[in-house]
Nucleic acid binder design. Sequence first.
DNA 1: TATTGTTATACTCTATAACTATA
DNA 2: TATAGTTATAGAGTATAACAATA
Lengths: 149, 149
Amino acid sequence: MHTICQVYDCSVDHDERDLGELFARITQRLIAAERPILARHGLQMWPYVVLARLAQGSAATQLELAAQIGYDKTRLIAILDDLVREGLIERRPDPADRRARNISLTPAGAERVVAVRSEIRAMESEFLSGLPDAQRLELRGVLAELASR
Amino acid sequence: MHTICQVYDCSVDHDERDLGELFARITQRLIAAERPILARHGLQMWPYVVLARLAQGSAATQLELAAQIGYDKTRLIAILDDLVREGLIERRPDPADRRARNISLTPAGAERVVAVRSEIRAMESEFLSGLPDAQRLELRGVLAELASR
DNA sequence: TATTGTTATACTCTATAACTATA
DNA sequence: TATAGTTATAGAGTATAACAATA
């Protein structure tokens, strides 16, 4: 059995794992940890993403909402249908443009987000428990920077 | 238009984005950046993950390899078939257990990994270009910690 | 003519079960 | 009886194109 560096000259550190691999693995772990929390509140991942996004402010149109959360506009429709049926969001025709529909949280939807978020925050705190406080704060900053560009 | 914190008491900072969302977005961006690099070398994501893993040492069995990269053993088969056909890996019956097969990189496979990796490292360096060196190194450490637990 | 929301359809990815050959 | 590898199949998830209403 040979590692690649026993066979080839390794001027670059090939053993180091790809950044993408590290991020993918952590993402996978976080999603796995969120799933049971969401399930307890009767939500799946994408419906929650929609609610969480709307909690930052209503969406002018469905197209805009789809772009904001990085999801396909055609698949979004069924998710919005469900959320309307459960009374968590409202879908109203835009008075200015009758093709478009304004999406917003209902009070029940806002309550749901608050409840879920506080549990997710607790999970995240546990997730980062190995890191000292200063490093956690710095990590948040770095992540926000890398995610926004 | 109301944000959730204008309507409800916000003892927790609800505007802060979920850790999962941040990691997911960054992962998405990194994968998007890797895809054209892999394509230039005639590879897709999972075949590359297989090669990259094998570069750290041959796999005793296909089952073990599947577990290491977090992929389904039945879907792995077609990927290994392709990689064998392209001469990038070898699949030999284990002399000790004739049910099992040992998977290892060929010299051509090892070369491919080295070539792809150096381009991925360059992309990553560009990706992190906003961060000072000390913070980059710290980030690597934190990510390795969070990914391994 | 272009755009929003919608539906239908085809395609890919994923999960499960079952089969073979060995142990 | 259990395990490694394989195959087949059913289901979920995803992408694409086309349509009605409105701009």
